[in-house]
Nucleic acid binder design. Structure first.
Lengths: 231, 231
DNA sequence: GATCCGCTTTTGTCTATACAAATAGATACG
DNA sequence: CGTATCTATTTGTATAGACAAAAGCGGATC
């Protein structure tokens, strides 16, 4: 990490390292495997281990549930259910989600308020086949995001972040100017290749950002600190 | 991952698993440690291992160099250097970067064009103390992002994604409407706690998004596929 | 000269064993 | 009853040894 060995430089073999550090091969191997997993080095049998080119900037972003996040940051969070309706999936939305039309869904719209300011507008679709208990849940006590995370395990998630100019309705709800730049986070969550939920969360651009740190060396690539902060 | 064990459920101890799977404890331990590193389970001595609550959605985003990315996607990429100037760091920028004022920097502005459409406006600061060879580099052949990645190893990076309404200058360069919502990616890269480069990349909102997938189970959390796509 | 075979190096993975660290629960003690 | 100590369990980490898999290299064979 000092940069003394440039990308492509061959690092000592396990055998050389175990002599240098006076430890067993398993120990050296574990360390090098961890580096390889983090993409710091590349290893090939018979060839050796090489410093990887950091061509690809990987960053780990924690995109948390809003209520949890606000609580962690010591902010006051509340929310209001704007809409809650059981529908069947129309053809175009079904295609978008990769599901079949006609499936029963629960549509929930929800406005999140932190420190008396609207911070997010959440538009969510919950597949009732995957989450039957949502049918009778009012979300009066627990917001839908948190409720789902606590209850339904998921095996795959996809996040997309886009920019978005507010339309009149969104601007009014978020108490911003119409046309204001917003961040739009789209998340689809699956369990065994079935969609569990699809959610669009719109954040006012002047009050929100997503952040991620990447430190290849520090213990636990996944154990990094702050990701998304309320500004 | 099937969901049969809900979050908080205690999974069998290493000793029970090695009996079940007829393998050594090291093998079981390696598997469980890998799951713990990915955040699928939580392990505590004497207590046991438990299915983690997937409260925190982690997503890995590859935020690549634009030219590399365009090449991968089979798009035609070109760029134009708009400005290239050696300056000294003023007080407010120095504070922003966490560096000391007066340091020599190279400021480079660059417009990236993919398939004849402007796709990104890059405003970059390179710390000349960390990258002395940048002083004589014209960036005529290789864009600054790629040039830096190939040459200078980094040990830490921070990414911030924000929404941004274009001002008149930016809108003209990106050939969009003024006030159009844009994605603004800010990246600061360090080498041993010294800033190497700071860059702001502004993407037109209608042509860009950031995406990330997360599959906790699949081999290599870091080996996932596409992150940022040109739409 | 081309192809195949075997040798060597290096990583990948497993086993069996050992001891350390954390800590819940039981026990002893004041 | 409260506190300290002991014990058992479970994870964390290390060692030494073994064999497998990939792949470069050299030599034998045709």
């Amino acid at each position: 990490m000092s940069g003394a060995w440039p990308p492509g430089h061959r690092i000592p073999s396990e055998h050389e390292l175990l002599k240098e550090y006076q430890c067993s091969r398993m120990t050296v191997n574990k360390a090098l495997s961890a580096l390889a997993e983090r993409g710091v080095i590349i290893r090939r049998r018979k060839i050796g281990s090489f410093v990887a080119s950091p061509q690809i900037d990987r960053t780990v972003m924690d995109i948390q549930d809003i209520s949890t996040e606000a609580a962690l940051a010591g902010h006051d969070h509340s929310y209001r259910i704007l809409m809650r309706r059981i529908e069947t999936l129309d053809a175009s939305t079904a295609t978008q989600l990769g599901e079949t039309a006609g499936a029963e869904i629960l549509r929930v719209h929800c406005l999140h308020v932190v420190d008396a300011k609207p911070i997010a507008l959440e538009r969510r679709i919950i597949m009732l086949a995957m989450v039957p208990s949502a049918r009778t849940e009012s979300f009066a006590m627990v917001p839908p995001g948190k409720w789902l995370l606590d209850l339904v395990p998921w095996s795959k998630a996809r996040h997309v972040i886009r920019a978005f100019s507010t339309d009149a309705v969104t601007a009014r709800l978020l108490e911003t100017e119409r046309g204001e730049a917003c961040l739009r986070l789209i998340r689809q969550t699956w369990q065994n290749s079935h969609t569990v939920t699809y959610v669009e969360i719109i954040h006012p651009g002047d009050r929100f950002q997503f952040a991620g740190d990447f430190h290849p060396t520090e213990r636990g690539v996944m154990d990094q600190l702050p990701r998304r902060s309320i500004s």
